[in-house]
């Protein structure tokens, strides 16, 4: 099991000089996850902020082999890489043990890339899929996705999103894969250990990581980690894992903080805190509590 020392001493695989925004969540998420991969690793990436900010030709921030193909096909692209690996292992062309990881945003995962991901999970392709989830299409300028929380402002939901978020973890688990976990960058050791577990899992595994986005969330750039922490402490983003059929909650607050504590840090939720939105806010709080109770029950089973 990796230690904080391993994490600190791990080689930098996504190096500085990339163009992501101040306070963006994904650089720390990516670096932590890649630090947990022992030995050589290959990255596949869906179109999105991550790819756009790290691969502006002729520069690259990737110190590891990297492939981007399109928005919706990162899982299929990685399937080709892992199967080529299998073929080359068979023929003796490759001796190294290689790890494979896909990074996709919530748009590239919950929406346009869901079919490609589902296909790969069903075929039990051997790679780690990481969704860095900032809850909207941020690369194109903040449009709603099926991961956008109910009530959130985006440029295509100017009055706030009407629908609930899609539950990606449930969808992944329904494919009967071995390992699925949620994580948050504020708890980096939890994230690193989950990544290590995922890399050591045979077949596919899925990590869904909350990725603060100051631009899209309307939050302060120096508050991203604090906000991620509040997301967990309010149970908006519970930390849990599904490991070979067993659910575990990785963080339990003694007393959950009210949702407002999380919402008030971001202007995308500003209207939810007005007196007229009282009922909507109550609905959202109830839904969060209900889902958390369901999760706790699963963890006791």
């Amino acid at each position: 099991m990796m230690t904080i020392k391993d994490l600190v001493n791990a080689p930098e695989r996504l190096v500085s000089g990339h163009r992501s925004c101040a306070g963006c969540g994904f650089p720390m998420i990516i670096r932590t996850i890649l630090a947990a991969a022992k030995g050589p690793v290959i990255v596949s990436n869906a179109t999105g902020c991550l790819e756009v900010t790290t691969t502006v030709y002729p520069f690259t921030s990737w110190n590891v082999p990297f492939i981007h193909s399109a928005f919706e096909n990162a899982s299929a692209t990685m399937t080709g890489v892992t199967r080529a690996y299998k073929a080359m292992k068979k023929s003796g062309k490759i001796k190294d043990d290689v790890k494979f990881v896909v990074f996709g945003g919530d748009g590239g995962t919950y929406d346009i890339g869901l079919q490609s991901l589902s296909g790969a999970l069903e075929r039990k392709e051997d790679f780690v899929y990481v969704c860095y989830d900032n809850g909207a299409y941020m690369n194109t300028g903040i449009q709603r996705s099926s991961a956008t929380p109910k009530g959130a402002y985006t440029t295509t939901t100017p009055a706030g999103k009407v629908e609930w978020r899609k539950d990606l973890a449930k969808i992944a688990i329904a494919h009967d894969i071995a390992y699925v976990a949620t994580a948050s960058p504020h708890n980096f050791m939890d994230l690193a250990l989950k990544a290590e577990k995922a890399f050591n899992t045979k077949g596919p595994s899925v990590l869904i990581v909350l990725s603060p986005c100051p631009l899209g969330w309307g939050s302060k750039t120096d508050q991203s980690i604090q906000i991620a922490k509040l997301a967990v402490e309010t149970n908006f983003w519970p930390l849990y894992e599904y490991d070979n059929g067993k659910y575990t909650l990785n963080y339990e607050s003694e007393e959950r903080k009210p949702l407002e504590k999380f919402l008030e840090t971001q202007s995308r939720f500003k209207h939810l805190l007005s007196p007229e939105s009282r009922n909507l806010l109550k609905d959202i709080q109830e839904e969060i509590d209900k889902k958390y109770d369901e999760l706790k029950k699963l963890c006791k089973e």
Partner: peptide, 17 residues
Amino acid sequence: TESEHSALSVLVGASSA
């Protein structure tokens, strides 16, 4: 694969490999 889109995407990955 689950679609032609993925079938060719798989080959993009494999050929790049």
